[in-house]
Design a protein around this nucleic acid. Structure first.
Length: 921
RNA sequence: GCCCGGAUGGCGGAAUUGGUAGACGCGCAGGACUUAAAAUCCUGUGCCCGGUAACGGGCGUGCCGGUUCGAUGCCGGCUCCGGGUACCA
């Protein structure tokens, strides 16, 4: 019987669906295991062969865990809100809900063919009101909570109000905006609107002014990377920095917990490092500098207070309010001009160009509080308003950027730590002895920092400070296709809906562009008013809103009373394995950790961290092929002959090229202008193409669709081949040509079960020692490799096993059934089919992963490599259990050793029992 | 600029903790079966030199150096490629 993958896969797809085999419940008799994929945005282009890589890996792991006796939650859903659907709507007028629905349908079709073990009954879509009700719900909860620094927890705003009534904010230590101290009497004397304004400074979801890239022509806000040289990327319209009232989430409140939590996670070190850098904790001090002849002070944050005697200039960010206040009359024109220019550059632009050193002297001087020295104050755009205090003391001798600035403008450089050479470069290292620093002289940097901070505090100049680079998340988007805010406005005050009024559903509109007056698209919604009277918030939530708590919803996706029930959450707890791409390393993975910590504070989740283990799959790159057309002709010259001509390199569809040999007939049909193309072939009569590894994209004609692969080889082959390509976490090019290898393997595996007449033919005889050794080697290897996500070597192990068993014509039922079970996570269809053909009624999914028995792998003898001076020359077979001395004796008696030693003296013999022998001569 | 990865045959890759470099697969070459082809099976295949051959020798994991009896894996210094990014004081 032939391996008819089409029939088999179709039959088993239906069989498994029909029997609801992938459905999971909270089965308390089994340990739980939660395997999650980063859910996809359903784009109009459909899946290409790179998308399922992570899904296949997680599916293999999920199936493996099931075989190991776990109750595995392995759901899938869609991150269905997003910009592409909206842009398509702007162009075509089609409702994003309609196109999104079509795209999801296509995604599901494609996914279902690959044979994933998803429990589709748990599917979620972020754009479904039944789902986003809970996104809005969490937003409201954040609105109604503040963060108490003392308890390091979110607490209800009511408790804060009670405290205000009693003591004002004098005793409150909260994560909050810049708000002055007030007494209870002041609070109690405020009207509702004033109280609202105060509370906004404390809420975890709050409204405040932020700078945005505003494009008047497009009537919308742009992301940093949509702005190039002050112009919008789309259309090239001018972009200005504008203050806008925006909703924000007070992520910074959780900075410490987000940082500390990383230590508990099984994530890659590089990913944790990225998160640490993003959170950016730095220890130092905040200190005030008086301004000469002005009644102003300048507050700076520095991690190197020890270097204050080397501060030779100060820098203010162009946005700093202090700039206007201290700039002298004669400098004001120059400064204004500089500030104006800097303001209209995006933050990213300012940082991208590090070569251009710019800045202007304000004419003002700060006074060094430790030696009374006057220090010139500059304005420069390498200092950012959003970080620290927006002002620095510059120590060019010990900071490379300050150094470059000082060199450029000819500012004095005073070394205060021994070890560098200021003629050549700054000395940034945090070690060495202090010099030129009065009372710090002679101290090590570390000690000097401590002493200086104590000094700053005791002299009342400032205080010790831990600074975070993390910023609050801007939560408003001037878009249509997102979650509406459950907020309406009454007399200019933002009023939340009550929870029982959720969800606030997205209204239909007839055009998806911003309004003429520059309002977001929701401004077009007719009669969209709270109780027919009050205007709703017109912006919508960003992409990360819906993806921040989705993992919780899968635990209990149809619950209309809660985001997740206590029972379900207590059973499933957290995600044991999360697989996805590195592009979400800091965005999604910071925000979802933040949401989870907030929900944890409220008692809605039992785990402080949502994703215990995380694996980043690498990117699958495209492998493009090229043909070479001789210029001004319709003649194509083969790769190895191209240098003899003046040619143009042209991308050719990889689907009509096999092992870099062009299918000339297919090429002629590919495009009309190719019909009468001529070819200069190589000696073997073939047209050879060039190749390159690049991003997989339509324009490069290197996109490979999984549907086509499945059509030609089947889903099991696709799954195996995706894994066989290389290490999961590494980026690698897709090249369909190698796929024959795994396809042949599956054919070989299939044939093991049949005799020459095509009948199932398995023997109940006891397996031989050799057979047991072959299969137990595999059982051991598969278990170990899957546990360490080394799926490419697992596939190689399957191949070795099939080759070995075929060689000895093994048809023992026990052996082949074990093979079948350990292969099933990778190739679910073929194994399910054979499982049934061998007489089983239940699915192989519910089988037990065979236990590996060490006794079958025991070797009587070991093949020792014998090396001379580290170079292996030959091998000797020696009994496995002999001692070092016996090994040495045996090796020295070997003829081959003797012939090598002729006339030479042995200086040393290294013997590692069980491993190797090295003779040094 | 900074941070994080990576570089091994013609190609994808293996070598799990410093112990036989190149598993497995593709491709290629040769052979068996066949009227022929497909499929399947068998053999060979890192590079160079010598030999009809068995075999022998040298080189070899991006480059330069180091540690070690022994380095693809460790240390120092580079080059190139990929990804991320925020001039973060």
């Amino acid at each position: 019987m032939e391996y008819n993958f089409k029939e088999i896969e179709e039959r088993q797809r239906q069989n498994l669906q029909k029997n609801n085999i992938y459905k999971v419940t909270e089965d308390k008799n089994k340990p739980k295991f939660y395997v999650l994929d980063m859910f996809p945005y359903p784009s109009g282009a459909g899946l290409h062969v790179g998308h399922p890589l992570g899904y296949i890996a997680s599916d293999i792991y999920a199936r493996y865990k099931r075989l190991k006796g776990y109750n595995v939650l392995h759901p899938m859903g869609f991150d269905a809100f997003g910009l592409p659907a909206e842009q398509y709507a702007v162009q075509t007028g089609q409702h994003p809900a309609v196109t999104t629905e079509i795209n999801i349908k296509r995604y599901k079709e494609q996914l279902s063919k690959i044979g994933f073990s998803y429990d589709w009954s748990r599917e979620i879509r972020t754009s479904d009101p039944k789902y986003y009700k809970w996104t809005q719900y969490v937003f409201l909860k954040m609105f109604h909570h503040w963060f108490n620094n003392k308890t390091q927890k979110a607490e209800p705003v009511e408790t804060l109000i009670k405290e205000f009534e009693k003591n004002g904010n004098t005793k409150v230590d909260a994560a909050c905006g810049d708000i002055p101290r007030f007494e209870a009497a002041v609070w109690n004397g405020m009207d509702e609107a004033e109280k609202d304004d105060v509370l906004m400074n404390y809420r975890l979801a709050y409204r405040s002014k932020t700078k945005v890239n505003w494009c008047p022509a497009l009537g919308t806000v742009l992301a940093n990377d949509e702005v190039k040289d002050g112009l919008s990327e789309r259309g090239g319209h001018p972009v200005v920095q504008k203050d806008m009232m925006q909703w924000q989430l007070r992520v910074t409140a959780y900075a410490k917990r987000l940082l500390d939590g990383l230590d508990t996670l099984e994530w890659s070190d590089s990913l944790k490092e990225m998160q640490r850098n993003w959170i950016g904790r730095s220890e130092g001090a905040e200190m005030y500098f008086d301004i000469k002849d002005k009644d102003e002070k300048m507050l700076v944050f520095t991690t190197r207070p020890d270097t204050v005697f080397g501060a030779t200039f100060m820098v203010l960010a162009p946005e700093s309010e202090l700039v206007d206040k201290i700039t002298t009359a004669e400098k004001s024109e120059e400064v204004d001009e500089y500030v104006e220019r800097a303001k209209n550059r995006t933050e990213r632009e300012r940082m991208a160009d590090a070569e251009n050193i710019t800045g202007v002297f304000t004419g003002a001087y700060a006074i060094n509080p430790f030696n009374g020295k006057e220090i010139p104050v500059w304005v420069a755009d390498y200092v950012l308003a959003g970080y620290g205090t927006g002002a620095i003391m510059a120590v060019p001798a010990h900071d490379s950027r300050d150094y470059a600035f000082a060199k450029h403008f000819g500012i004095e450089i005073i070394p205060v730590v021994e070890g560098g050479n200021i003629e050549e470069a700054s000395y940034d290292a945090k070690s060495g002895k202090m010099i030129n620093s009065d009372f710090l002289n002679g101290l090590e940097v570390k000690d000097a920092v401590e002493k200086m901070i104590n000094e700053i505090e005791s002299r009342g100049l400032g205080k010790r400070k831990v600074n975070y680079r993390l910023r609050d998340a801007i939560f408003s988007r001037q878009r249509y296709w997102g979650e509406p805010f459950p907020i309406y406005y009454k007399d200019g005050r933002a009023i939340p809906l009550s929870e029982d009024e959720l969800p606030l559903t997205l209204p239909d509109i007839d055009d998806y562009k911003p309004t003429e007056s520059g309002e977001p698209p929701l401004g077009r919604a007719k009669n969209w008013l709270y109780k027919g009277k009050y205007k709703y918030e017109l912006s919508t939530m960003p992409g990360f809103a819906g993806s921040s708590a989705y993992y919780l919803r899968y635990m209990d996706p149809h619950n209309d009373k809660a985001l997740v029930s206590k029972e379900a959450n207590e059973y499933w707890q957290d995600v044991d394995l999360y697989i996805g791409g590195t592009e979400h390393a800091v965005g999604h993975l910071i925000y979802s950790r933040f949401w989870n910590k907030f929900l944890f504070d409220l008692g809605y989740t039992v785990k402080a961290e949502p994703f215990k283990k995380l694996v980043n799959q690498g990117m699958i790159q495209g492998r493009s092929n090229f043909v070479y057309r001789i210029k001004n002709s319709n003649t194509y010259v083969s790769y190895n002959l191209r240098k003899k001509y003046d040619v143009t390199e042209i991308h050719v569809d990889v689907n009509i090229v096999h092992n870099d040999i062009l299918d000339i007939e297919a090429f002629k049909k590919w495009r009309p202008e190719n019909a009468d193309a001529e070819f200069i072939l190589e000696e073997d009569g073939k047209y050879r193409c060039g190749y390159a590894v690049e991003k997989m994209s339509k324009s490069k004609f290197n996109v490979v669709n999984p549907d086509d692969i499945i059509e030609q080889y089947g889903a099991d082959t696709l799954r195996l081949y995706e894994m066989f390509l290389g290490p999961l976490e590494q980026s690698k090019p897709w090249d369909t040509n190698g796929i024959e290898g795994v396809f042949r393997f599956l054919n070989k595996f299939w044939r093991l079960f049949f005799d020459n007449e095509g009948n199932i033919n398995l023997s109940d005889e006891e397996p031989t020692k050799e057979e047991q050794k072959i299969i137990h080697t595999l059982i051991k290897k598969v278990g170990e490799d899957i546990e360490r996500f080394s799926f490419n070597t697992t596939v190689a192990a399957y191949m070795v096993c099939a080759n070995d068993l075929a060689k000895i014509k093994c048809n023992k039922k026990e052996v082949l059934e074990n093979f079948l079970i350990v292969l099933s996570p990778f190739a679910p269809h073929i194994t399910e089919e054979l499982w049934q053909l061998t007489g089983h009624k239940d699915s192989v999914i519910n089988a037990k992963f065979p236990e590996f028995k060490e006794e079958y792998l025991k070797e009587d003898s070991i093949k020792y490599p014998v090396a001379f001076n580290g170079k292996t020359r030959f091998t000797v077979d020696l009994p496995a259990d002999i001692k070092k001395e016996e090994i040495e004796k045996a090796v020295l008696e070997d003829e081959r050793t003797k012939s090598r030693l002729e006339g030479k003296e042995i200086r040393k013999i290294i013997i590692v029992p069980g491993r190797m022998i090295n003779i040094v001569i």
